[in-house]
Design a protein around this nucleic acid. Sequence first.
DNA 1: CTCAAATATGCCTTGACGGGCATATGAACC
DNA 2: GGTTCATATGCCCGTCAAGGCATATTTGAG
Lengths: 110, 110
Amino acid sequence: MESSFAIIAEPNRRTILSLLASSECSVGEIEHQLRMSQTSVSKHLRVLRDAGFVEVRVEAQRRVYRLRPEPLMEVDAWLTPFRRFWTAHVDALERHLNQMDLPPNKGKKR
Amino acid sequence: MESSFAIIAEPNRRTILSLLASSECSVGEIEHQLRMSQTSVSKHLRVLRDAGFVEVRVEAQRRVYRLRPEPLMEVDAWLTPFRRFWTAHVDALERHLNQMDLPPNKGKKR
DNA sequence: CTCAAATATGCCTTGACGGGCATATGAACC
DNA sequence: GGTTCATATGCCCGTCAAGGCATATTTGAG
């Protein structure tokens, strides 16, 4: 029931996801590569799993985690209405922003 | 200093951003259209402003808020490494996932 | 069955965040 | 200057989530 956005608000979880984007990993590998405590890794993976970001495969004593794309696709989809603010308008937008950000003579407080 | 991801973790803030994606709005307009309290709207706008998601324009007694693209571009950029999991691979990925999810004969618990 | 390795979970504490209320600030108008 | 409209801010409170520690659980080995 937690929004995908809330899930990826956590920096450690984003790091884990980025790592899993390279390749699937066991808990121990994540723990070691990211220098996080095992407890923390397991808990974050639990959250990621419940939210559908990852899935597990049991392999001997190891649990190998792998990325699932759906929740991130949802985030990607949410961005759609905003893309018109930069896609294909980049140059025009930049000109516009520069014009707003650097009023040459206004002497603003800030 | 707050990550853009933490900012958009808040549902009301996402709603405000979506509204601003349609057109710039004053605080009162947001308050009315989204049925949120003025206090709440102002506070969220403050957070969004500090994080660079919006900018203000003073117009008489009104403050008109407008979207700024940079932070969302950052989110969009973070998604890049993950897009290969669905862009242009959709069908292949689906086949792959189906193959993993529904082992035809393994008799899994679940 | 016992032990060890890998991982998960429960409990507790602490800190951050959102909501509401009252109040402050600022601009316009008389 | 005083009043009113529009918005911002400070304070208090309840909630919730993350980290740490200890412990439980699962799986493999002997």
